[in-house]
């Protein structure tokens, strides 16, 4: 029973990472109409930024500043490259562009910080189990869940109540109309892209605290994040969030019974979902088609 709880809890943590990645991806997929293959690379980049500024700012400072730095790189990428492709209807171009960028970013990380994995120190106050029976509930893991909750809550609040968030949502449903109403959609898309990268950055630093840094750390998270979006439904941020948690939990629970199947199970869930309910949990019919 403890083993099951242990794995389920692990799955939940994993699911929180998936959900954070999926939220960023879904944001960018929505307004920027871009499958951001470089999302994993941006995530790793933020983690390495955190690693570099750690001695000066400490963990807490790095947690705030490093995602912003990564978002700065995202700003450059969006304004100089991704933006040029919005007028091309075929999604292949942004897909291949971000794929190429992912290769470049990963190679740069490898060149600058080295190919070996590095640890990222986490504050001592977070680094011990809270109970003896449930040894796996460490402060850090609860902290991960907490940060995921807070940042997701903040995102939904921004989208719901702030002017920019309302514009992002309006742009998702009809970009031409809000452009005609005088909204600078280029600026809006840039901001949206940067918010997406911010989420990748937060996920990256949290993941680095748990598993350490390595240049390919994004690879193992980006695919499940895609699956989370498909399961949750394209076009629904809440769906992506749920999708991430569901596949994380499922993968954790399956680990208890058949460790070898823990990765495959998320694709099975996706397959079943596609057959039973092709638009996903909360997806809108006919979006992006």
């Amino acid at each position: 029973m403890v083993l099951l709880l242990f794995n389920a809890f692990n799955g939940l943590i994993q699911g929180a990472f998936y959900a954070l990645m999926a939220l960023g991806l879904a944001l960018i997929l929505g307004l920027n109409a871009t499958i951001n293959f470089a999302h994993g690379a941006f995530m790793a980049l933020a983690a390495y930024f955190a690693f570099t500024i750690f001695p000066y700012t400490g963990f807490w400072g790095a947690l705030i500043i490093a995602p912003l730095l990564a978002a700065g790189v995202g700003f450059v990428v969006e304004t100089t490259m991704v933006r040029r492709l919005y007028t091309r209807k075929d999604p292949i171009y942004t897909l291949l562009l971000t794929f190429g960028l992912a290769l470049i970013l990963q190679d740069m990380i490898r060149t600058i910080w080295g190919a070996q994995g590095q640890p990222l120190a986490i504050p001592a106050m977070l680094n011990h189990p809270l109970s003896n029976t449930y040894f796996f509930v460490t402060g850090y893991r609860l902290f991960v869940v907490g940060v995921a909750l807070v940042s997701t809550g903040a995102l939904f609040a921004v989208l719901r109540f702030s002017r920019i968030g309302i514009r992002i949502r309006a742009g998702n449903s009809d970009l031409e109309t809000i452009a005609a109403l005088g909204v600078n959609i280029y600026l809006l898309r840039t901001i949206n892209f940067m918010i997406g990268i911010l989420f990748a950055g937060v996920a990256g630093i949290l993941a680095a605290g748990q598993l350490g840094l390595n240049p390919n750390m994004g690879d193992s998270l980006i695919m499940p994040a895609f699956v989370a979006i498909v399961v949750g439904g394209v076009g629904s941020l809440l769906g992506s969030l749920l999708g991430g948690l569901i596949i994380g939990l499922a993968s954790g629970i399956v680990t208890t019974f058949a460790p070898a199947a823990s990765e495959v199970v998320i694709y099975v869930i996706m397959g079943v979902m596609l057959v039973v309910r092709p638009r996903g949990l909360l997806g809108q019919e006919g979006l992006f088609e």
Binding site: I35, M223, F226, V230, V234, Y267, M270, E289
Partner: peptide, 21 residues
């Protein structure tokens, strides 16, 4: 069953399944 970006994402994920197998 799906088209456009959705189609791509599904093919990506199906492909990864075989990788893990």
């Amino acid at each position: 069953r799906r088209r456009g970006i959705y189609f791509s994402m599904i093919t990506i994920a199906i492909g990864q399944m075989f990788y893990f197998i």
